[in-house]
Simulated assay, not measured.
Amino acid sequence: MTRLDTARIRVARQRIDPAFLDTPLYRCEALERDLGCAVSIKLETANPVRSFKARGTEVVASALADSRASAVVCASAGNLGQALAWSGRGRGLDVTVVASRFAPAAKLDRIRALDARLELVDGDIETARDRAAAIARHDGIRLVEDSLDLETCEGAATIGLELVDAVPAFDAVLIALGGGALATGVGHVLKECAPGVEVICVQPLGAPAMTRSWHQRRVISTDSTDTIADGVAGRFPIPAVLNDLLLVADDAVLVQEASIIAGMRMLFERAGLIVEPSAALGVAAILEDPDRFAGRHVVTVVCGSNVDAASYRRWIGAES
């Protein structure tokens, strides 16, 4: 059985600041000639933290405020930290974010600007998770664990509620796959409310742990990651999240770095969108397997746009 519940997701929607709800969903004809299929974009960057993550942190922070909690800590590759800082600041919570010192500077700077305490660690997101857990134990405060905590999954799932109301209907949705909150949340709602829609998860070839786990139906970890898509670069899938994913994903695919960059460039040149690498995974999947999507109507969730300017210019070849 899944951990997620659609009735609870509908209740969660009432706890989320409207600034993060009803994000744009539109047919992007400018992409279609190159991609060979009808493409709609669900633009999860059109909000104060420029990613979908605040849908989950709003649910977390609202519940913490109701319980009169005063502090919270999380590990983050950047976007969850920004979101928790934003949601916590508005509810009087003392927010600590642990991140890798190698995380994109733009994400780290924004966390600081949102008044969170930022602690940097050597190593990757898994090292940051260990440190955040230690802080939570020492200080006796709530640890927010992205994808493991149901609030993060069910907050993200509110995107699915918005997709099922879309007119016209679509054939498939492409979802970036990292820890799994976005994929399991949106996938759960679609499979319950629009079961004919194909749910396809997309992950970089250089960070394949969750995709390999989905295919083998058991947790497969990796020793390292090698991808520019930092937001989905986990190494240790969470068993409970994998169980949820197995119930809702129709497929999980891996894409190459060159395709991610090509997707970022296409979204910029054709759609006028500046996105981080994780947000281009859906377009990358179409580029790598156009025959699969030919003649279909596909939605891709553009999940974040927090990217360092210098790195972005280098990747897409823009003038500095």
Rank of each mutant, 00 (worst) to 15 (best):
A318Y: 14
P237M: 07
A132W: 00
L64V: 13
L247S: 15
F293Q: 09
D146R: 09
E288L: 04
A113I: 09
G304F: 02
A38N: 11
L150G: 04
G160C: 11
R235T: 05
A71K: 00
Q216F: 11
S67L: 15
R217T: 11
T2D: 14
K53E: 07
L148C: 10
A194F: 05
G36K: 12
G196H: 15
E151L: 04
A106F: 09
D22S: 14
S70K: 13
F236Q: 15
D66M: 12
I135A: 07
D165T: 12
S213P: 04
E44G: 02
E29G: 11
A134R: 15
A280S: 13
V302K: 04
I238M: 11
I261G: 08
N47G: 05
G206K: 06
L242A: 09
G185M: 02
V186H: 08
R89Q: 15
A284D: 07
A106Q: 10
L190A: 00
D124F: 07
E119L: 08
G155L: 14
A156V: 12
V173C: 12
E44P: 02
W86T: 00
P104F: 00
L93R: 13
T23L: 13
G88T: 09
A61W: 02
P290M: 12
R8S: 03
D5E: 06
L190K: 09
G81T: 00
A77M: 03
G155I: 10
V302T: 14
G140K: 01
L254N: 04
S147C: 13
A30I: 03
L182I: 08
A309E: 12
S224K: 14
R314P: 04
R292F: 15
R55P: 02
R3K: 12
P239V: 00
L242M: 08
R131E: 03
Y312W: 15
T158W: 00
I261Y: 13
D17W: 02
I220H: 10
P195F: 09
V164Y: 01
V59T: 04
F170S: 14
A134P: 03
V253T: 10
G81C: 02
A318L: 15
Q82I: 02
V248D: 08
C303W: 06
L161M: 07
G263T: 10
A280V: 06
F268I: 11
K42G: 08
A181W: 08
L287V: 07
V72F: 01
A99G: 01
E145G: 07
A106G: 05
I111S: 01
A271Q: 09
T211D: 03
D226S: 12
G231W: 01
A85M: 03
I286Y: 12
A249Y: 11
A12M: 05
R8M: 12
A77N: 04
L246G: 11
F102G: 03
L174P: 15
Y26T: 12
V241D: 09
T45F: 02
T23R: 14
P168S: 14
P168L: 03
I261D: 08
V283A: 10
E257W: 13
F102E: 13
N79Q: 01
D109M: 15
